[in-house]
Design a protein around this nucleic acid. Sequence first.
DNA 1: CAGCATGTTTGAAG
DNA 2: GCTTCAAACATGCT
Length: 273
Amino acid sequence: MPELPEVEIRRQYLETASLYQTISHIEVEDRKLLTTDYNTLVTALVGRQFTGTRRVGKNLFVLTDLPSVIVHMHFGMTGDLDYYHASLERPRFARIVFEFTNGFNLGFLCPRKFERIGLLDDIDAFLKRKKIGPDGLSISLPELTERVRRKKALIKPVLLDQRIVAGLGNWIVDEVLFQAYVNPEQRADTLTDNQMSKLHAAIQLVLETAVRYEATYRDFPKSFLIHVREWDDSPYDDLEAHKYCPRCKSRIERSTVGGRTTFFCPTEQVILQ
DNA sequence: CAGCATGTTTGAAG
DNA sequence: GCTTCAAACATGCT
């Protein structure tokens, strides 16, 4: 589920569990998960300690006691972390394992192998090379407006584009557009000042809410659209209730926009132009 | 079993 | 250069 909030939770988890412990070894089950040659990775990291973290969008950077040695983690669609004692059995899908001299391991869980780990020596250079835009939690309204309005594509794919604003994924974009009363198929360059303002507020609201509830969807406010998604083991009794707009009770529509499954309220999310 | 999936990259085509 | 669309990646879940 790694969109920005989930990555932020993983960042906090790593920071709590794994700093200032010396790395003794790294197990890698499948080297395709590495963006850096295995031997280079091991040589650079064995003997090092993690000393801090930084997150930009869905990217997690782990700093070490050597400033030029930085670990980059991307959690793909299903990546996770698990810190466990080495005497325990390796967690399922822990295909990359950092072993520390204190007898604990940090497992990088990759059920679908879409996840990646690699080395960097300069975060800003990496962000520039990948053209990663400003983080969703810190982008200003004028900056968002400028970046969104210069695109002619549909607003949903624009918000999914990590070069415009970093950290929003499929469900968050649906939620943001719902909270901002914007139709996912409206052209990005036609958004009014009022819409941009609502969009910016919605991004902050959704991201902050998701981080606050540690990305546990079922705990989100009832006013959120996310509850229509099937993978929400809802807190509500009536499963049918999920299919309706929490505000106006219209039936929520499911379509495909920019190649991605999209949920929206056809009554409240209308195209303005 | 078939279909779908929270992400990213790449390539083809207009 | 821009946009759209599809495929690919590899696997798990329903």
